[in-house]
Simulated scan of single mutants.
Amino acid sequence: MSEHAEHPGEHTDCSETLHRVYEYLDGEMTPDDTHKIAKHLDECAPCLQQYNLDQALKALVKRSCACEEAPVALRTQIMARITTIRLQASD
């Protein structure tokens, strides 16, 4: 994996892309950030492969759990764990 730049000083590296992939999948980014991540995915096969896996996983979970809603406390606990894991992975 690598860094890709259209202009000097403007790049989105693999760690940032993978860290923010769910924001991208959920449409929770600014248009500028969305463009940067999309550009990186177009240029980086390993990140695109991980994005495709995450996209498939998200679709599978949605299909499997569509009729059930998790309690608020459980959702909060899951999000806290995901954040902790991401922080540990970035260290």
Rank of each mutant, 00 (worst) to 15 (best):
4 H>S: 05
5 A>M: 11
6 E>V: 11
6 E>Y: 09
6 E>C: 07
7 H>L: 15
7 H>D: 12
8 P>N: 12
9 G>M: 08
10 E>S: 10
10 E>H: 10
10 E>I: 11
11 H>C: 09
11 H>D: 09
12 T>H: 01
12 T>L: 12
12 T>K: 03
12 T>E: 04
13 D>Q: 07
13 D>Y: 04
14 C>T: 14
15 S>T: 07
16 E>W: 03
17 T>C: 11
17 T>Y: 00
17 T>N: 00
20 R>C: 06
20 R>K: 11
21 V>D: 01
21 V>P: 01
22 Y>F: 14
22 Y>W: 12
22 Y>C: 02
23 E>N: 03
23 E>W: 03
24 Y>C: 05
24 Y>F: 15
24 Y>D: 04
24 Y>L: 10
26 D>W: 12
26 D>A: 15
26 D>L: 14
27 G>P: 02
28 E>F: 01
29 M>A: 05
31 P>I: 07
31 P>R: 07
32 D>L: 15
32 D>E: 15
33 D>S: 06
35 H>E: 13
36 K>Q: 14
38 A>Q: 13
40 H>G: 02
42 D>Y: 10
42 D>E: 15
42 D>K: 13
43 E>R: 15
44 C>H: 04
44 C>Q: 06
45 A>G: 05
45 A>P: 02
45 A>W: 04
45 A>V: 06
46 P>E: 06
46 P>T: 06
49 Q>E: 15
50 Q>R: 11
51 Y>N: 01
51 Y>I: 02
51 Y>T: 01
51 Y>S: 01
53 L>F: 01
53 L>H: 02
53 L>K: 04
54 D>C: 09
54 D>A: 14
55 Q>K: 15
55 Q>G: 00
56 A>V: 07
56 A>F: 06
56 A>M: 10
56 A>H: 09
57 L>P: 00
57 L>G: 03
58 K>T: 12
60 L>G: 04
60 L>I: 07
60 L>E: 12
60 L>H: 09
62 K>G: 05
64 S>M: 13
64 S>G: 13
64 S>F: 03
66 A>H: 10
66 A>F: 09
67 C>L: 12
67 C>V: 10
67 C>Y: 06
68 E>A: 07
68 E>V: 10
69 E>H: 08
70 A>D: 06
71 P>I: 02
72 V>A: 14
72 V>D: 12
73 A>E: 13
74 L>Y: 04
74 L>T: 08
74 L>S: 05
75 R>N: 11
75 R>Q: 14
76 T>S: 13
77 Q>G: 02
78 I>K: 03
79 M>Y: 02
79 M>R: 14
79 M>A: 13
79 M>E: 11
80 A>E: 14
81 R>S: 10
82 I>T: 05
83 T>M: 08
83 T>E: 13
